Amino acid sequence: MKLKFQFTLAFMLSVLSLVCFSGMAILINGSKIAAFDHSIIMFIQGFESLGLTTIMKCFTFIGSTPSVAVISLFSLFFLYKVLKHRTELILFIAIIVGSPILNKLLKLIFHRARPDFHRLIEINGYSFPSGHAMSAFAVYGVLSFLIWRHIPARWGRTLLMVISITMIVAIGISRIYLGVHYPSDVIGGYFASGCWLAIAIWFYQRYQEKKFEQRRSTQSKK
């Protein structure tokens, strides 16, 4: 029953994320979200200081491809050696590898230029959706999903969610603060990654459900 609920929830979240991403894509193509983007950028960059810039560069570095690769390798080791995960590793690898591929494809489709009015770092490439936002959501989202059931205490689960949400939000905000992404790029990245994450979990839960039914069928025949 619990597995069926998770199966249904993953499907509903994937559809919801897809709808939200599609809505965001329509808005940016029609330039209707420019005022929203500008006001949020002005608000966030209004806190600019030397110390905060250093912190935001650190979060951006954590969300970069080299850092994500290192975090993923340590996570794979932890999942395999400590938690004894096997099939879960396939889910983890699929999500981590699939996220940047999906991001590249989406950027080629939308061809949105990056903001150019106040950049604190220089970077090339298209803007929508944010690759850092997608990677952060994918990494910390799948880790939360896989580690959650191994934490018995409620405070431990709460801490896991707080850390994951903090990292996802902080990496996204760092891209806006540094002037290399519009807020809609970051939000769109969350929705795109959320859709990919939920779809991957949906397939994983479907596989788990079939395994459970096969075991139950085998036991009933004995």
Score class of each variant (00 low, 15 high):
Pro66Thr: 03
Pro66Trp: 01
Pro66Tyr: 04
Ser67Arg: 03
Ser67Ile: 02
Ala69His: 06
Ala69Ile: 14
Val70Gln: 06
Val70Tyr: 08
Ile71Glu: 13
Ile71Cys: 05
Ser72Thr: 13
Ser72Met: 05
Ser72Gly: 10
Leu73His: 03
Leu73Trp: 04
Leu73Cys: 11
Phe74Arg: 01
Ser75Pro: 06
Ser75Gly: 08
Ser75Arg: 09
Ser75Tyr: 04
Ser75Ala: 12
Leu76Asn: 01
Phe77Met: 15
Phe78Asp: 00
Phe78Gly: 00
Leu79Phe: 09
Leu79Lys: 04
Leu79Trp: 07
Tyr80Glu: 07
Tyr80Trp: 14
Lys81Asn: 07
Lys81Gly: 06
Val82Ala: 13
Val82Cys: 07
Val82Trp: 13
Leu83Phe: 06
Lys84Cys: 08
Lys84Thr: 09
Lys84Asn: 10
Lys84Gly: 06
His85Thr: 06
His85Leu: 10
Arg86Leu: 08
Arg86Thr: 11
Arg86Cys: 07
Thr87Met: 14
Thr87Leu: 10
Glu88Thr: 10
Glu88Asp: 12
Leu89Asp: 08
Leu89Cys: 09
Leu89Pro: 06
Leu89Met: 08
Ile90Arg: 12
Ile90Asn: 14
Ile90Asp: 08
Phe92Gln: 00
Phe92Thr: 03
Ile93Glu: 10
Ile93Gly: 13
Ile93Phe: 09
Ile93Cys: 09
Ala94Ser: 13
Ala94Lys: 06
Ala94Asn: 12
Ala94His: 07
Ala94Glu: 07
Ile95His: 04
Ile95Phe: 04
Ile95Cys: 06
Ile96His: 02
Ile96Lys: 01
Ile96Val: 11
Ile96Gly: 00
Val97Ser: 11
Val97Asn: 03
Gly98Leu: 06
Gly98His: 14
Gly98Asp: 11
Ser99Asp: 06
Ser99Glu: 08
Ser99Tyr: 03
Ser99Ala: 11
Ser99His: 04
Pro100Ile: 02
Pro100Asn: 01
Ile101Phe: 14
Ile101Gln: 10
Leu102Pro: 01
Leu102Asp: 03
Leu102Glu: 02
Leu102Asn: 00
Asn103Ser: 15
Asn103Val: 04
Asn103His: 02
Lys104Glu: 11
Lys104Gly: 15
Lys104His: 14
Lys104Tyr: 12
Leu105Met: 11
Leu105Gly: 08
Leu105Cys: 15
Leu106Val: 00
Leu106Ser: 02
Leu106Cys: 00
Leu106Ile: 02
Lys107Trp: 03
Leu108Asp: 03
Leu108Tyr: 00
Leu108Phe: 04
Ile109Phe: 11
Ile109Ala: 08
Ile109Val: 15
Phe110Asn: 02
His111Cys: 10
His111Pro: 08
His111Gln: 13
His111Ser: 11
Arg112Asn: 04
Ala113Thr: 08
Ala113Met: 10
Pro115Glu: 09
Pro115Gln: 07
Asp116Tyr: 10
Asp116Cys: 12
Phe117Thr: 05
His118Asn: 14
His118Thr: 06
Leu120Gly: 08
Leu120Gln: 10
Leu120Asn: 14
Leu120Trp: 09
Ile121Val: 09
Ile121Phe: 01
Glu122Ser: 11
Ile123Ala: 10
Ile123Met: 12
Ile123Phe: 15
Ile123Leu: 14
Asn124Glu: 13
Asn124Cys: 09
Asn124Met: 13
Asn124Val: 08
Asn124Ser: 15
Asn124Arg: 08
Asn124Lys: 13
Tyr126His: 11
Tyr126Phe: 13
Ser127Gly: 01
Ser127Lys: 02
Ser127Gln: 00
Phe128Pro: 04
